[in-house]
């Protein structure tokens, strides 16, 4: 049984209510203005003949759902990275895992035509792209894992992550240079991906992938708690360190890989959200931190989406810039406030 203090219960309730409110604000106030009366009647009647039906059900709702799952996925993968590497500054973006995903997709989209002499068939392309993205994420994760066995220093690992990420990005640029016009165009379109780029059809790939990753994360809290103490302690308490690591590994690859596959690299949600969760709930218990990170991630991502469509007139700001502007101050504040970074857990 998980015991919540009254204050923690209250914060959970507030976050839950806030996310529902933000979700509807996100749907109601898009980049194109919909009069409230018509917004309300279209949602209630669900009438395909309505003027706003397509805008709402083909674009706004899918986009809002993508924001929900993206936020949850990035937050949980960030939390898992931080505990796995015992590194409070870890996250899927900063460790280069998102760049690994890009590399995976580039290899597929740019490399496939070279090898097979044809474009990736559209029917298999959605799953193929996600799959390539997972593999790319997993490859970078594996590299960092190998390095972290030998090097324990937090900062060195981060530098390696940044290096791996940059190397992956550089490789992608080289491949773009040599790619055929058609495949480069396909790849560039992919890299421009945003929350709004995901169609209803793609959601049927995106959501199950994220749910699978979150599902694994939801059985891990007890093990993650034990992992905090360090490897020797974890083993001595009967934890199968390699098994748990593999599960974290699969979960993170699914989460960060899927997000990158559909929305492009989105930074700073993964690193900032777990810290906000720790501060709000004053705990290091993953039974609380995992759901808390999910809720905070969802809220922050929807908020970013709302901000991104503020300019109106059909303009949408790049989502990656918004999350960076929201996340970076949190990260800086965390670093300044805590001289001893290792105490952040």
């Amino acid at each position: 049984m998980i015991k919540l203090r009254p204050k923690q219960f209250l914060v959970f309730m507030l976050l839950g209510l806030l996310s529902v409110a933000l979700f509807f604000i996100d749907v109601a106030f898009g980049s194109v203005k919909i009069p409230f009366q018509e917004f309300y009647s279209t949602i209630i009647s669900h009438d395909p003949a309505s003027v706003w039906f397509t805008t709402l059900f083909e674009f706004r709702f899918p986009k809002a759902w993508v924001a929900v799952f993206t936020g949850a996925a990035l937050a949980v993968s960030g939390l898992q990275m931080q505990t796995l590497f015992k590194n409070p500054l870890a996250g899927p973006y900063i460790l280069g895992i998102s760049s690994g995903s890009s590399l995976g997709v580039a290899l597929l989209v740019l490399g496939f035509p070279v090898i097979f002499g044809m474009q990736v068939p559209f029917l298999i392309s959605q799953w193929a792209i996600v799959f390539a993205s997972w593999i790319g994420a997993a490859a970078i994760l594996l590299l960092i894992m190998v390095v972290s066995i030998r090097i324990k220093d937090i900062m060195t690992i981060l530098v390696f992550g940044i290096m791996f990420g940059s190397a992956a990005t550089a490789l992608v640029s080289v491949m773009q240079y040599y790619g055929s016009d058609a495949s480069v165009k396909a790849f560039v379109i992919w890299t421009l991906g945003s929350l709004g780029g995901v169609t209803n059809h793609q959601l049927s790939v995106f959501i199950p992938s994220i749910l699978a990753g979150l599902g694994i994360a939801l059985v891990l809290p007890k093990s993650l708690n034990v992992m905090l103490l360090g490897e020797n302690y974890a083993r001595s308490m009967g934890l199968h360190v390699n098994f748990i690591r593999t599960l974290i590994f699969i979960s993170t690859s699914l989460l960060a890989g899927s997000v990158t596959a559909f929305c492009g690299p989105i930074g700073f949600i993964g690193i900032a959200v777990p810290h906000i969760a720790r501060m709000l709930f004053r705990t290091s218990d993953h039974f609380i931190l995992v759901p808390a990170s999910i809720l905070i991630g969802v809220n922050l991502m929807i908020l970013s989406d709302i901000i991104s469509q503020l300019p109106g007139n059909g303009m949408v700001l790049p989502i990656n810039s918004i999350t960076a502007l929201l996340g970076i101050p949190v990260v800086i504040w965390i670093i300044i406030r805590n001289q001893r970074l290792t105490s952040l857990f």
Partner: peptide, 21 residues
């Protein structure tokens, strides 16, 4: 073990509870 784990958020009771794993 000699591994030191310092945390602002982990309570003594919860740390001891990890032993029940």
């Amino acid at each position: 073990s000699t591994e030191l784990f310092r945390s602002n958020n982990l309570k003594v009771g919860d740390l001891v509870g990890l032993g029940r794993y």
